[in-house]
Design a protein around this nucleic acid. Sequence first.
DNA 1: ATGAAAGCGCTAACAT
DNA 2: ATGTTAGCGCTTTCAT
Lengths: 335, 335
Amino acid sequence: MDKRIATIQDVARVAGVSTATVSRTLSKPSVVAQSTRDAVLSAVAETGYRVNSTASNLRRQRKGSAIALVPNLANPFFSQILAGMSAILTPARLGLLVADTQTGTDPDERFAHFLQSGQADGLVVFDGSLSPTALDVPGRPPVIMACEWMAGDLPSVRVDNALGASMAVAHLAEQGHRNIGHVTGPRGNVLTETRRDGFCRAMAEQGLALRPEWIFDGDFSMDSGAAAGRRWLKLASRPSAVFFASDEMAVGFMGAVQHAGVRVPDDLSIVGFDNIDVVAHLTPALTTIRQPRTIIGMRAAELLVEMIEAGSLTGPSEVIEMEFISRKSVAPPKD
Amino acid sequence: MDKRIATIQDVARVAGVSTATVSRTLSKPSVVAQSTRDAVLSAVAETGYRVNSTASNLRRQRKGSAIALVPNLANPFFSQILAGMSAILTPARLGLLVADTQTGTDPDERFAHFLQSGQADGLVVFDGSLSPTALDVPGRPPVIMACEWMAGDLPSVRVDNALGASMAVAHLAEQGHRNIGHVTGPRGNVLTETRRDGFCRAMAEQGLALRPEWIFDGDFSMDSGAAAGRRWLKLASRPSAVFFASDEMAVGFMGAVQHAGVRVPDDLSIVGFDNIDVVAHLTPALTTIRQPRTIIGMRAAELLVEMIEAGSLTGPSEVIEMEFISRKSVAPPKD
DNA sequence: ATGAAAGCGCTAACAT
DNA sequence: ATGTTAGCGCTTTCAT
């Protein structure tokens, strides 16, 4: 038995045809004669041949992979998005390279690095903190912004964050809450800003007063939510409901205040954002805004594949629908 | 300005040297003269040259990436492991390809596929359900089993699962529990088996009786934990404590029983496994066995890089220490 | 419908 | 210390 891995040459020899014919049989079968095709296919089976994607990529000027740039791999929010992307990329013969913008150096620098390094045929950016200005790179691959992006007309897949925020506020107001707080994401992040702005606008629309001391800084993490919870506990006058820019923060916040004996939703109503898996299993189960993560990942990947195959740097922008999910963390205020 | 991306030829021309010298300057700088080196480097800067990794990989017979085979990308447990791998792989000029064994076809088949497809320079397998027998493939790349593996002497990074289980049982017994149940992972998974066996052995060592109806089938997911919780609620005679093969299941279980008015830890003590982030923020915070995920990812990647660079299919097996984390979900039984 | 041949961009002998 | 050269394995004109 041969230890060496079979190349297209081996197949060609066994099948008694040229390498060109083998290549054609594998990529555009319709163009070769039935009989030849059979011969090639059985030679492939016999030799155990698999195309060397590196060589193929070099020849076709492809990289064979797409990169997902995520702010924090450890956040479960992204794993499902990645799974969605993977489902689309694999059949398109594209691997999924995952890069965390947090690790190592300056995120913007890393962004630029991936753009220029030519490691991938395309990028999907999930980090709302990256500056789109960095995109001005000669010979860069197509990029999908999977974020509601400020700077304009880049192809994107996103969710209407402001709408999500207003759904939350509307629900709370409907239940009778007039004193509503908000925990934000990290500064300088588009997601943070659109959700905060949406929150403020919705409050105004509902005729509700905005109290600056009820807006807590967070960074999307559970720990930052817990910290906000501790600040809420110290407040002389507390909002009766809080809307969070992420479920993770809501989880941390709720844990912290429950620890201090506060009952949710009796003493405090909570609305999260994202609908990560765990929130349905909490006590109480969290009311939240669902982002369809698998779908976001899939659509981003689909758009990217189209751009790659068309060799285009431009593409559509798409808005994915969100859904309000009412569970047990909201009740009318005690008053 | 040139739109085309610069190749090594361009750099060579600008620097007035051969392509070989450019290549050397970039990979083994020590071997070229200071002056030449400077000339090359400034030509690189001027042209904006970056090596084409596809071409480099083809020539060097490398793929330029490693694959992590995970059972379920949507499980937060893995994201941190991947982050750890990424930290090691990137400096070794290796990309991280992520593949979910759940999606699509038969897991074992996908395993074989990745082994043979030659998409990567190496694999790290995190799925305890895969059969190591599939490894018998000519020309396969090095593989690290990041699981306590049954079939022997493959290089691996793992945790002593049986020991983890016995730490849990010992703690529970110490608190006075004599009736202890267990929720397992999916059937046919090594992790499931080593943790269940460890549990049974530890029970015997503590002189505690094992009740078959107190062993619940799960599959590591929160939903399966919730289902086990519902079964527990229906039991005529209930164990006063339950040890879980994963935190996710513990979370689902606790949610389900709390929903029915059961108080943890007063009515029921719970010990999880993994220490995923969220369990510290739950009410009550979960007592669990910590697996150092970042470290597991890093060591697996380090071992793999060594094997890749040595061109070896064999390597060491390493056991990573676990830690018992005592929080609030365990109390003495009410009796 | 098939084959011959020319590279894709790079690295590593080998030669100088 | 540097240059010359021969491919790595594949795809794709261009002929036939």
